[in-house]
């Protein structure tokens, strides 16, 4: 086995060169190669932490904005509902008032019309009474040849009207 032929001087020189190369590599690695890696890793970690922090701040801001917006919307909705209710109430009151006045007017009109009808009826009845009395007097004179007493004719007509009016 060549590795165990320790009489070979190359075994020793190999070890000496190993120490030189390994030592140089150690210096190179520790002084030149590793610091930038540590720097880059630290920078990246810091950048990620800063970005996360910024994102968190922005999210809080957005949350606050959303809350404010929701509050404003709720307030506006409440205001609108109040205004709507007020308008509805006013309209209802107006309508009730109008209805009441209309009813009053209609009742007045009705009463006036009824009074007019009553007057016309009374007038018509009066006219009928005199015409009926005349007709009755003439008919009596033609039939009997005697002119009846006007008072008696009027009384008879009145009685007749009264009985027919009762029958109505």
């Amino acid at each position: 086995m060549p590795q165990l032929e320790f009489a070979n001087p190359l075994i020793l020189t190999q070890v000496l060169w190993l120490l030189v190369i390994f030592g140089a590599l150690y210096v190179l690695i520790s002084k030149v190669a590793l610091p930038p890696v540590a720097q880059v890793l630290a920078d990246r970690e810091a950048a990620i932490a800063a970005d996360l922090e910024a994102a968190r701040a922005l999210k809080a801001e957005a949350d606050a904005a959303i809350a404010a917006q929701e509050k404003a919307a709720a307030k506006a909705r409440a205001e609108a509902q109040a205004a709507l209710r007020q308008a509805v109430d006013a309209a209802k009151a107006e309508a009730a008032k109008a209805e009441a006045s209309l009813g009053e007017r209609l009742a007045a009109d009705l009463a006036a019309a009824e009074a007019r009808i009553e007057a016309a009826k009374t007038q018509a009845l009066g006219a009928i009474r005199s015409i009926a009395a005349e007709a009755a007097a003439e008919a009596t004179a033609k039939l009997t040849g005697t002119t009846p007493e006007p008072g008696a004719v009027v009384a008879a007509v009145d009685a007749a009207i009264a009985s027919s009016g009762k029958g109505r």
């Binding site: 086995m1 190359l10 190993l18 590599l25």
Partner: peptide
Amino acid sequence: FELTHVAAGFTNSNLYMLIGGVAISALM
């Protein structure tokens, strides 16, 4: 596994140590 002499006691084994060291340094 036979060592061969390059120069000044520097062997083929040391040559590959050097190549390895250069490769590590290059990588980093």
